[in-house]
Design a binder for these strands. Structure first.
Length: 337
DNA sequence: AACTTCCGCAACCGCAATGCC
DNA sequence: AGGCATTGCGGTTGCGGAAGT
């Protein structure tokens, strides 16, 4: 397979294009079309290689190019497509009218990738990073700063953010393990679908969380101080299922966070605990941290009252399925699916 | 004000795919 | 079918302006 001759070999000009060169290129293409890119420079009176002309035209001079800031919608589209296609910039560009692959690639590398990292996602897999606590030193450093300069109010906000982040991670784990959410083309939840998470605001416990999307992290990435981790009892601990009869889901760890003194969220073993009954409308809220160890057993009877009894299989997958169905059977969560 | 560092983006490089003879 | 030319694509570079010191 042949290689294009390098511009250098022929003493052709490289580097930024001048307005005069742009004008020549535009004039020529408007009159004759680009035809052979190799022949074009000579015909257009340009001391450039054909490749350079082609790139200049396709990435900058083409009249149908849309310039300027990417809209929220475009951003979501890129995130979504990237989660499916990966770094197939040209394929992604076909779904964004007027945007070039180069522009999308640059936007990804300079903005979106950083956002995902800040949100705790692996930008390549779009999966939540499981090494959240490997960034502990950074969190500690942040905590030290906050310790001296932040007001109590700020700390409370951080705690809320920690809870928010944990909830997102929970939902990701949940959606990943839920067969009911699996499709052939996109079997996992991804941040590009964060708009979906907004619907979770209908969950009573999460209602207090404002509508959540990427822009929420634009100016201030979610941050968690070590102090607040301690205060909120956001714990990293081995799986020790406190819910009898429910096998541990196949996840590396789970979080447990106390929203306040009265509420507990366990993640991803997000335990919706009935307070006296196991009906679908029972509360999501645990009365106290300790109560999680004294939960009434979720028996097959109670499960059948809630969801599909066949999902009570003792294997791990069945467990995930069970929990997922348990959760998704909740009318509050119907919007998600 | 001067210098340094950071950041965004246009452009380049080089490999792969496709087309043509 | 094989070889060369051309085009497409993704990764990387480096320039210029902004922000920070």
């Amino acid at each position: 397979m042949g290689r294009s001759p390098c511009c250098d070999e022929n003493g052709l000009k490289k580097g930024p294009w001048t307005p005069e060169e742009d004008e020549k290129l535009i004039d020529y293409i408007q009159k004759h079309g680009h035809g052979s890119w190799r022949a074009l420079p000579k015909l257009a009176g340009l001391n450039r290689c054909g490749k350079s002309c082609r790139l200049r035209w396709t990435n900058y001079l083409r009249p149908d190019i849309k310039r300027g800031k990417f809209s929220q919608e475009e951003e979501q589209t890129i995130l979504h497509l990237h989660s499916i296609l990966g770094n197939k910039w040209s394929a992604i560009a076909t779904h964004l009218a007027g945007r070039t692959d180069n522009e999308i690639k640059n936007f990804w590398n300079t903005h979106l990738k950083k956002k995902l990292i800040q949100m705790g996602y692996d930008p390549m897999t779009h999966q939540p990073r499981t090494d959240l606590f490997s960034s502990l030193p950074n969190l500690i450093a942040l905590a030290n700063i906050l310790e001296h300069h932040q007001l109590e109010e700020h700390a409370a906000r951080l705690q809320a953010e920690a809870v928010q982040l944990a909830k997102i991670q929970y939902l990701q784990c949940l959606l990943q393990t839920s067969p009911s959410m699996t499709t052939s083309s996109n079997s996992h939840f991804n941040p590009g679908d964060l708009g979906t998470v907004n619907s979770i605001s209908s969950i009573p416990q999460i209602r207090e969380i404002p509508s959540l999307n990427l822009s929420d992290f634009e100016n201030q990435p979610p941050s968690v101080s070590i102090e607040n981790i301690a205060n909120s009892q956001l714990l990293h601990q081995p799986i020790t299922s406190n819910a009898p009869n429910i096998p541990d889901p196949q996840v590396p760890f789970h979080f447990q966070t106390h929203l306040n003194n009265d509420e507990v969220v366990r993640i991803p073993n997000f335990t919706r605990v009935s307070q006296g009954d196991n009906t679908p409308n029972s509360s999501w809220i645990l009365p106290s941290p300790d109560s999680s160890s004294t939960l009434p057993p979720l028996t097959e009877t109670s499960i059948s009252n809630i969801g599909d009894a066949s999902s009570t299989s003792s294997n791990v997958e069945g467990s995930s399925s069970y929990w997922s169905e348990l959760l998704f059977d909740d009318p509050f969560l119907h919007d998600i699916s």
